[in-house]
Design a protein around this nucleic acid. Sequence first.
DNA 1: CAATTTAATGCAAACGATTGCATAACTAAA
DNA 2: TTTAGTTATGCAATCGTTTGCATTAAATTG
Lengths: 377, 377
Amino acid sequence: MKFILSSIFLQSFAKFLYSIILGVITGWKMVNKKRNVITLKDVAIKVGVDKSTVSRALNPGTQDLLSPEVVARIRDVATRMGYRKNQLARSLRTQRTMTVGIVLPDITNTLFAPIVRGAESILEPLGYTSMIVNTDDDSERRNYLIGVLLERGVDGIIDAAPQISTTQFKSIEEHGVPLVTAIRKTDRTSIPAVINDDEEGIRLLIRYLHVRGHRKLAHIAGPETLSTGHLRLNAFRQQTSLIGLDIPENAIAYAMRFDEDEGSRCALDLLVSGLDFTAIVCANDRLALGAIKALHQSGIQCPEDISVTGFNDLPFLNLIPPGLTTIRIQQFDVGRLSAELLTRMMTNQEAAIPSTSILPVELVERGSVSKPRTNSF
Amino acid sequence: MKFILSSIFLQSFAKFLYSIILGVITGWKMVNKKRNVITLKDVAIKVGVDKSTVSRALNPGTQDLLSPEVVARIRDVATRMGYRKNQLARSLRTQRTMTVGIVLPDITNTLFAPIVRGAESILEPLGYTSMIVNTDDDSERRNYLIGVLLERGVDGIIDAAPQISTTQFKSIEEHGVPLVTAIRKTDRTSIPAVINDDEEGIRLLIRYLHVRGHRKLAHIAGPETLSTGHLRLNAFRQQTSLIGLDIPENAIAYAMRFDEDEGSRCALDLLVSGLDFTAIVCANDRLALGAIKALHQSGIQCPEDISVTGFNDLPFLNLIPPGLTTIRIQQFDVGRLSAELLTRMMTNQEAAIPSTSILPVELVERGSVSKPRTNSF
DNA sequence: CAATTTAATGCAAACGATTGCATAACTAAA
DNA sequence: TTTAGTTATGCAATCGTTTGCATTAAATTG
């Protein structure tokens, strides 16, 4: 399937080395050897006023303390000199960095990028800048990175990578930094969480399968340490029992990670268990993709032989056959709402914040579900 | 295709509102009303030394100025008190923020996330933190965001969103901040660029098509303002003429953006132009996906009727039929190398840096290319 | 043992902004 | 004309570090 023109590869690699070694060497001459940045003082001297006056002139909140002419003159000179405020110095003095930390498990996962965008849609207009860090779902890395954020004095943190049970929030609380979790939640109700309606999503899927005649369901569960894995599994158990389906324990396979390989492994586990089932409800899309792949490789067709459902509705999913029937979540809105709550917390310590905000989900019907075969294989 | 259980949607939306309005209200009580952070001074008083001594004890570079016992005692007390350095104050004094700015056109585009990861693989171990901003390929936003980065005193910038011809680097130069462009380059040789071998990629594709009998090629070109669009178009022209193919002007369609919609639009343009062609070389994968979709909708099959190629090898592409034949680039390595060059520039002003570093590419063969029909339709 | 070097620490001045308070000039009221 | 009240600006402290220099005590040398 994958084909590499290796000689050409080598050739171009040599070219690469060549470009590194002999490439046009430029010193990237600094325009100013010694950083030549303009400070308030420079502007003040030029204008002939005190730097405090310049500061006041440049800050919208204080400029009306000054006479309009002075403000105008200062602003003029400042822009002419190319003055830029030093946000560091300002932050040190004001004790606000106008920075929020965003903690992700993995920036390359298409699920999380829109959360960032959603958050920034709120934060940027307010003058906040975000610092994004990747935990790789490793709690040691997580601790380290949260330390980094705290040292840099972030005004708040949006955490899209928390584990359910966690002692990792102590340092954040000590610093008194507002915190919101996004997409996932923790077992602490004192930490506001913005999540999707995992329960409702699973309910929709199970009902959808049930209506089409499926009675024997299996589940590939996500990591128990993540609320998404945990809640969806619980919902699966609850909803199936609610409509009177019997789910034996070995109809549930537990993935260690939310990825394709684990999806494949779990699907195979279900197959070899000898269990009889007509559909697999997967805790997310990537598990589902892996499962479908494993089924195919075992000579089982989806949806003809077994139906499969996902969760999240990743981009491009509609282009991948058979077209995964899944739950669409509102990643952007999760980010947006998280940021809204966070800004309220940052600006008003007394603000009343919902401990959990649940965003609605919708079912997306594609080709990975059909009626079950009358006699299962 | 897309099916929404709307009543259930409404129901869950109501639930959402409910959770917002009536959700368990928690004040997210701050543990410390007034931020209660420990400073050097606090530690110094506790230990009974000067704060400068504490500073020296805590900094690896200066701790050997002190007697080992004092260092040990200070470190002990500091950790016991939960001291965390204030990176802001430190940066203000040292004139280094240990922060680099990463400028992306769009964080949600899967092409760019790995660049960030690659860069961080170098930067993080060195103690740098990155600030990621999205320009949306809008040069006004770009200017604004670069201003933000400069105000925050980044030590260097990796720019993965430059346009070819640009006057936008003046402010960066004025501040004397090192800059590297990644994945794209500019027309200034004084700005080091790390790019993929666009030319070689197009050469590989054209050769590949030519060997399989294609003689009538069309091209969907990317935006001329981006080096990737520009270089690939040039390479297309050059390579086709090199092997003696005649390419009429209307065999080239110009996309305004690198997205699916523009791919579709351009493909339709090519179709209605009445031109005779057997394959479309697209400037990137997203254009190719759009093109294939448009062909299908026009009743033309890929690859049976027309072959299509892409560029970049986005993730999951292998799962999308017919399987796009494309060029694999090394996004992670682009990020990594950019960061390596940047750190050299940040630490050693005199370092010799290649003005352009070109990373090798490889052809990935999938199903979107076949032999041309003997009589084109 | 006096003289000189070395080692360990403290003092105080930065870094570049913001901001409470003091002061000067000016206006308005008495 | 004096007094009180504004208005516009300057002065100086502060945020939490780092770091050049001064100082003291200890160690080394002749």
